[in-house]
Amino acid sequence: MIQVSNLQKAYNGVTVLNIPDMTIPQGESFGLVGNNGAGKTTFFRLILDLIEPTQGEVKIDDQLVMRNDAWKTSTGSFLDEGFLIDFLTTEEYFKFVGKLHNKTDGDIALFLDSMKDFFNDEILGSKKLIRDFSKGNQKKIGIAAALIGDPKILILDEPFTALDPSSQIRLKRFLTDLQTRFNMTMLISSHDLNHITEVCKRIVVLEKGNVVKDLQTGDDTLNELEAYFAV
């Protein structure tokens, strides 16, 4: 599904990410943890072709992502507010993204209906612009928009931060559901070790741009991670 080979990113000669080889197969839930500056967002941006690798390449479905449009049909992503179009209302935004994936108005209405629980009645039905929503609600909007095109791959950067406790629990349930029902490949980064071990089957720990741990989630993964990050 996603193949990373010899991937390196350096700024002014300082290597911030170095992943010699990594494969993320179809249907895997891939969790990325690491302290600030470990290279999590850089890794995601490289996969999404938003920054140019200094060396190496990323392939999605055996196609290079660099300067290519093919992967965009099957990938949904939300890293930060730059992934929103903040001068639209939520309905306009969902409709816009839906149309990009050739969805009809009926499809979009059906999709939004399925998100009702997650939105908790706060997102739809107001003429508010996205830029006027709170950070937490903006996050919900971004995550929903990433899902509207039935992606095979979902990439989320710290989806749990800024969400209220109920929404965090809903999101966890929702992500697990997506895995079991659609066999969706997921790449999720988080600072919350509890959440990430609950949602992801595989956990990769980055430190200063290098992979230092690559674990299949088991009973004592959480303890192992807590021990690793303990100071």
Binding site: K72, L79, G82
Partner: peptide, 15 residues
């Protein structure tokens, strides 16, 4: 510019 990342990752060919 403020939503450039959005346009680059959504299903929109550059052309």
């Amino acid at each position: 510019s403020s939503h450039f990342d959005s346009l680059m990752t959504k299903n929109i060919p550059i052309r």
